[in-house]
């Protein structure tokens, strides 16, 4: 169904490097938390602990476990396991990229138009369906969604210039 080979099998980023990346990420996160806690005060005021008291110790715990995790990965140099093959990561990107574009587009063109685009792109690009089915499913889904959310349950979802024009 993909029409693509899974890339040169066997090649890809090592599991170890990704693990290191994730551990560094949690480390950075812990520093942000600690910094934010220091801003609001981490001591004990007359009416109980200040707002930063708990987050500060949470931050310290994350920092500590990130360091332990990092240390364990670096020490454990033997495993040559792959994280994933490049071809597999390519597959993942084929979802991540359109979805990211979708998420960025929503504030500008509204969720309905963006959703039609997303469903159409997916079905055409990944599924290789014919245009009739692509348009039927994408527009059909969105029309049903519109009726259910906006008309039945009165939940306003983000709209863009197209809805404005249609007077919806």
């Amino acid at each position: 169904m993909t029409g693509q080979s899974n890339g040169a099998s066997g090649a890809g980023p090592s599991h170890r490097s990704v693990e290191i990346g994730v551990a560094l990420l949690t480390l950075v996160f812990s520093l942000i938390v600690i910094g934010g806690s220091l801003q609001v005060g981490i001591d004990w005021a007359f009416d109980g602990p200040r707002a930063g008291f708990f987050p500060f110790y949470l931050g310290l715990l994350i920092l500590m476990s990130s360091l332990v995790n990092l240390f364990q990965i670096i020490m454990d140099g033997k495993t040559q396991r792959l994280f994933a093959e490049w071809g597999q990561l390519g597959q993942v990107l084929r979802v991540v990229v359109p979805s990211t574009v979708y998420v960025v587009l929503v504030p500008y063109i509204g969720i309905y138009a963006a959703s039609i685009l997303l469903i159409a792109v997916f079905m055409k690009w990944l599924g290789r369906y014919g245009w009739t089915l692509v348009l039927a499913v994408s527009i059909g889904t969105i029309v049903i969604t519109f009726i259910v959310f906006e008309k039945w349950f009165l939940v306003p979802l983000p709209k863009g210039p197209i809805e404005e024009l249609l007077g919806l």
């Binding site: 138009a113 685009l117 159409a120 792109v121 197209i162 024009l165 249609l166 007077g167």
Partner: peptide
Amino acid sequence: MTRPIHTLSFGAAFALGTALA
């Protein structure tokens, strides 16, 4: 490849939209 058809369908939507408005 996909672009012209999309703009086309949106063109139609626009036309319909103005008419409704």
